[in-house]
Design a protein around this nucleic acid. Structure first.
Lengths: 149, 149
DNA sequence: CCGGATCCGGCCGGATACTG
DNA sequence: CAGTATCCGGCCGGATCCGG
């Protein structure tokens, strides 16, 4: 059993805060929250989005993926691929040759996911500098520690 | 100093895999990868997206946020808000009253982020059942352990 | 009401070794 | 080449106490 990480998600309790019958709408069941949580559980990990992104250009073998992604360990690549396969986002086809060859490809579902992901990436690259500026300004203003001692 | 989590990101080395002059494009500097990494570092954590989402509807006070998000601890809300403020995604305005009152609001930048996030959420909610089905099928087929012993 | 500080458990994820 | 299993450090994040 690979009872390690990425065994993941979704089967979370998400219990409905009993004890509070609630004065107003209590937003636990707010669909947006639930969806975002599940989303994060699925692609919020360190590598899933990258794999999805890389596979968008076409099928790749295990080792090719590992070289493309650079920084991912053997172990995490295996696990990430497994969980993506489980969720129907990639397919795994192994050719019984010597040496063995295994190809991973994005499914239609996987490719459909990469579109909004690319949207997000576009946002990030468009506003990257703004964020850096804001961060610098914030850090400047909070050098209170220096002025203090 | 709050040298705890979310001190985050971005200043990652991302060294260019020296040693391989590379036969083809080696994709480390693939802009997509870099951008996605930074993106995850920023909003891939457990709460940032939720805060952004909740604040999209209008400013809220600290305690209101905590009730809205439900499940977030006092500590993580503070930290998340801090990092979002630092990156220019939310503003913090404190009214010097007794008792103190502090309001958090999304900036224009923050609201612009919530759009692609909502796109993603839309995808998730649209394909949620497909994922569950795929997962179930996968798990069925992998009850090999049961048939084995 | 707001938020910082400390303690601490749990999981994420890297390194490594071993199998086919 | 592809995949599994084990060990282990580090950070995420919850509980709690304290201070403004």
């Amino acid at each position: 059993m690979t009872n390690d990480p990425i065994r993941v998600l979704s089967t979370r309790p998400l219990d409905g805060v009993p004890g509070h019958e609630g004065s107003e709408a209590c937003s636990v069941d707010n669909p947006a929250s639930r969806v975002i949580r599940e989303l994060l559980a699925r692609v919020g990990d360190k590598w899933s989005m990258l794999v999805i992104g890389v596979l968008h250009d076409g099928p790749l073998r295990f080792t090719e993926l590992q070289r493309k992604i650079d920084g991912i360990s053997h172990r995490m690549l295996t696990q990430t691929l497994r969980s993506l396969e489980r969720d129907g986002l990639v397919t795994r086809t192994s050719y019984p040759e010597i040496p063995p060859r295994v190809e991973y490809a994005a499914t239609a579902l996987g490719r459909s996911l990469s579109e909004p992901v690319i949207e997000l990436a576009r946002w990030a690259s468009a506003h990257h500098s703004e964020i850096l500026d804001a961060r610098e300004a914030f850090d400047d203003q909070h050098e209170a520690s220096a002025t203090l001692r």
